[in-house]
Design a binder for these strands. Structure first.
Length: 634
DNA sequence: CTCCCCTCTG
């Protein structure tokens, strides 16, 4: 690094302030302009705010004729956090040359932080030398930073040497050393240090306990971990979120998921880490099922029940978790295929992989993996794997191959296999095959109302209205009814639920006029090209006729627009899968109204922003894929 | 007026 050369030579001859109590100004200058406290605070805020760029703060700084030491420090700190910590060092050099100031006790922690991020031993050593020369060698803040720095550079010995020489170690000194030992794999030393700390009568805090627990986790020492818990309770140390999470991790990794679960249930506050830790704990036990996303512990009803006492942060975490799981899964599946053998989830992963393939249209990969399951991974495909394969083929429009595949199955096709075929028929509007699949499915599961609903949807999609009404009659007679779709939206802790074409909401009038405004706006911006979309939004007669067309999510979004401030996220939960129209409308609204919309439907998470959705429109993509496949084969 | 330490995941 170039600045190192610049740094090492002139520093030796720099006049170093010998006494920290001495004035921090090199020379007297009575005419220095005075910066108000407010100016300085504003400047600090501008360097820290995530909304303003550091470049801007830098420009402001360069306009200031004679920045004071506080301002220099602020800028050095800002760069130490930035992606370019070397700028901190450059600013520091500029300060030495241009300003009348010596570095003070605040300057060094920032500089050392920058050196830590740079992972340059030499740079930090120069600062260390400067610290000693300028008589800050006793400052516990600076020395703690140095522990962190040396450990980060991989020199635990030197970090420990710094630690030992600190005259009055504070709790941060001990914590730094303990957690650094843990991170460096010296678990025994970490625990030893903890005992030493006890002996020196330094009161451990929550951070200490996190470090100690981490050591227990890594050593798989459940005994000691349990002891730590009782110690915490005895000494009345506050169990904050991080500490609880560390404890969860300890229990889970040391093989006591029961204890983890118990603690998890007791925790008042949970975050994404808590959830991740628990899920991971279960995963390691092999109790993990990606089906479990919608049932059991984390099903929608449960979330709703818990929301009242656990606030909406939990919901956000869950949404993140869902999306994270899907993304991670796809990542693992697409890049780490061969490593699956070493995975403890061996028996389940092929299944996940197949599902991921079916949702992202990776036909070839799905086919290949399915064929490899037994010879390579030693897993005999079960009926669920066959259903997945049918799903993959069907989604891609390879209906004939899917049928052939089912006929050749060595085991009896289950309802899920026929269901997958039926689903594919809906996508590709194959009425004849759909009827066959439906009847086979009903043979196995006569009460399966979803099959009939699906079939009636296929009839509707292909405009076979006679068949639709016939089927509806049949369903009415047999008492089968489609699960009614609803969407809910939470505003200030109150849940607002919308059914299709719902006008029961107190603000119903406003909601509908907002919808009209949306339509007008979409129209005038030239975004509405799809006639059916427009129809669904405005034609009230038709709406009543079809009953279900004006979906609750459109109402929920309109309500969201009028009841939240522009900076707020619009958060919607839908019990069924969001339809293509609502999906498109949500995308357009996110762009035209410049709003972020989070929509969790039955199957996945959608984050609409700037006209796009995080799901990458995978149900629009199959159309492209089909098109591509058909042009390739023809 | 500012500064040091912490869990999960990969």
């Amino acid at each position: 690094m170039q600045f190192m050369e610049t740094l090492s030579t002139p520093l030796v001859s720099l006049p170093i302030q010998a006494n920290p109590e001495a004035p921090t100004v090199k020379s007297d200058n009575q005419n220095r302009p005075v910066l108000s406290l407010i100016d300085q605070k504003l400047f600090t805020a501008s360097t820290l705010s995530p909304f303003s760029s550091l470049e801007y703060a830098r420009k402001v700084f360069d306009e200031i004729p004679e920045p004071n030491l506080y301002m220099w420090n602020t800028l050095i700190r800002a760069y130490s956090w930035s992606p370019e910590p070397s700028e901190s060092v450059k600013i520091f050099l500029r300060m030495l040359c241009e300003s009348p100031y010596f570095p003070n006790k605040f300057t060094f922690p920032f500089l050392i932080k920058a050196a830590t991020k740079l992972s340059r031993l030499g740079v930090g050593q120069v600062f260390h030398g400067l610290v000693v020369k300028s008589s800050f060698g006793d400052d516990v803040f600076i020395l703690n930073s140095l522990i962190h720095f040396y450990a980060s550079c991989g020199d635990l010995d030197f970090a420990y040497r710094v630690f030992v020489r600190i005259g009055e170690k504070d709790v941060v000194s001990w914590n730094s050393m303990i957690s650094r030992f843990v991170q460096g794999g010296c678990f025994d030393k970490a625990l030893e240090l903890f005992k030493e700390m006890e002996a020196e009568n330094v009161k451990p805090n929550a951070v200490t306990k996190v470090g100690v627990l981490s050591a227990c986790t890594k050593m798989k020492d459940l005994e000691f971990g349990r002891w730590v818990r009782s110690y915490i309770e005895q000494k009345g140390i506050k169990m904050d979120l991080t500490l609880s999470n560390a404890m969860l991790d300890m229990y889970a990794k040391c093989g006591s998921v029961e204890d983890a679960k118990k603690l998890f249930d007791e925790m008042e506050e949970k975050d994404i880490v808590s959830w991740t830790t628990m899920i991971d704990g279960y995963a390691k036990l092999g109790e993990y099922d990606l089906g479990a996303m919608d049932v059991g512990e984390w099903n929608h009803e449960n979330i709703k029940k818990q929301r009242m006492k656990l606030n909406c942060h939990l919901t956000t975490s869950l949404i993140d978790m869902y999306s994270k799981c899907v993304e991670e899964l796809q990542l693992i599946c697409s890049t780490e295929g061969m490593k699956l053998r070493s995975s403890p989830m061996l028996l389940l992963l092929p299944m996940y992989y197949a599902c991921a393939c079916s949702h992202s249209g990776l036909v070839e990969e799905g086919r290949m993996f399915f064929n490899q399951m037994e010879p390579v991974y030693g897993v005999v495909p079960g009926v669920k794997h066959y259903a997945c394969m049918v799903d993959i083929l069907g989604r891609a429009g390879l209906l004939e191959e899917a049928v052939e595949f089912i006929e050749k199955m060595p085991i009896t096709p289950s309802a899920s296999v026929w269901g997958a075929l039926l689903g594919a028929c809906k996508i590709h509007e194959n009425v004849e095959l759909a009827e066959q699949a439906c009847s086979r499915l009903l043979e196995l599961e006569p009460e399966n109302d979803k099959a009939l609903v699906l079939l009636s949807n296929i009839y509707a999609k292909t405009e076979k209205w006679d068949n639709v009404s016939e089927l509806k009659k049949r369903m009415r007679v047999s008492g089968l009814q489609k699960e009614r779709g609803w969407s809910s939206m939470e505003v200030n802790g109150t849940l607002h639920k919308f059914l299709a074409a719902d006008n029961s909401h107190p603000l119903s009038k406003e909601i509908y006029s907002k919808l009209e405004e949306i339509v007008a706006k979409l129209k005038s911006s030239g975004h509405v090209t799809n006639k059916s979309l427009l129809l669904q939004l405005v034609d009230e007669e038709d709406m009543k006729e079809q009953g279900l067309n004006l979906h609750g999510e459109k109402l929920a979004i309109a309500f969201g627009l009028i009841s939240t401030s522009p900076s707020q996220l619009i958060r919607i939960v839908k019990n069924l899968r969001v339809c293509g129209d609502c999906h498109t409308v949500a995308k357009l609204i996110s762009k035209l109204y410049n709003r972020e919309i989070l929509l969790r439907d039955r199957y996945r998470f959608h984050h609409f922003s700037g006209g796009n959705c995080s799901c990458m429109d995978y149900w629009c993509r199959w159309e492209e894929l089909v098109l591509k496949n058909s042009t390739q084969t023809s």
